[in-house]
Amino acid sequence: MSFHRYVALGDSFTEGVGDPDPTRPNGVRGWADRMAAELAGDDFTYANLAIRGRKLLQIVAEQLEPAIAMKPDLVTIYAGANDVLRPRVDIDNLMATYDVAIGRLTDAGARVVMFTAYDPGESPVFGALRGRFAIYNELVREIAERHDAVLVDFWRLRDYRDDRLWDIDRMHMSSAGHQRMAIAVLDTLGIAHDLKPLEVLERPLLTSKQRRAANLEWAKSHAGPWVKRRLTGTSSGDGLRPRWPALAPVTAG
């Protein structure tokens, strides 16, 4: 299986937050860039329209038409997690919009890759929303089946229980996590590749006192600002533009 025009859509998951690279737009790399490098060839181009903080309706409104205009033969899209995290969300209506969007992408001739959300069951912060995410995931699976989309089942990738695959903010994948996701997408598509898991250092065991101090620092540096943005209606993606807004060649490796 080979592709020639790949467009990535979504939020921070696809933009690449948690995988820092100061040489790239917005200072991040991410699994989609990593995957595109594996797909690179003489007749391959790639665009990434994802912007952190975007909710599903924003992704559909801002990214769908530009993507279709590029006539992609491969589209990856992850949308809805930011909505599910909100205090109130109508998941059924939200996913009805997602269903229409996926239908438009497949009707345009693209092979569409979708994702379930990660299982937050072991998270002390997001674990209370596990039921919501399970409902979201079941609806994603229905949409994928209806439109013959490829599904990467993030919920079942149990190696992500290793906190080294997560960034220090505990909400985004680390560089190792993004590499793992690129491998998962390529494997699910059945595409041969040379990617290997990144080596990660063992993290030292913390005493109870050290763990409490780390949790307090995390709450101050990451959880607090995240809650504030939601209360004030702002987004971490405000003012940002898509990293790769137009199809362009990619350097392999």
Rank of each mutant, 00 (worst) to 15 (best):
L240N: 08
R230Y: 09
A134L: 13
A219C: 09
A149N: 04
R164G: 09
R158H: 13
T188K: 09
Y118A: 15
D92T: 07
A101G: 14
N26K: 07
S2V: 00
T234R: 15
A213C: 00
L216V: 02
S123W: 11
F126N: 14
P120L: 06
P66F: 00
T232A: 13
G253E: 14
D33C: 08
Q63N: 06
T106R: 14
N26M: 07
P22C: 05
L129V: 08
L201V: 11
A248D: 05
P22L: 04
R130T: 14
P25Q: 03
I68N: 01
P242E: 11
G53Y: 04
A37L: 03
A108M: 10
A69E: 13
A101N: 13
D83L: 01
S235P: 03
A219E: 14
L195S: 05
A213M: 08
A79P: 07
R146K: 13
P197W: 01
D43S: 12
P72R: 02
G109L: 03
V113P: 02
V17F: 03
R156T: 09
V113Y: 02
L186K: 01
S235E: 11
G253A: 15
M114N: 15
R104A: 10
V125R: 15
K228R: 12
A128Q: 14
P197L: 07
G30W: 09
M114C: 15
S208G: 12
I102V: 15
D162C: 11
I77C: 12
E138W: 00
A176Y: 09
Y98Q: 06
G18I: 08
S208C: 00
L85H: 07
G109Y: 07
I77W: 04
I183M: 14
D33I: 03
K196T: 11
V75N: 00
D187S: 08
H222D: 10
A246R: 12
N137T: 13
A134K: 15
V7I: 06
Y46P: 02
L39W: 06
S2E: 07
E202Y: 01
A110W: 08
T45E: 14
A252D: 01
L201G: 11
P20E: 02
V100K: 12
I91R: 09
R34H: 02
E142D: 15
A252R: 14
M35R: 12
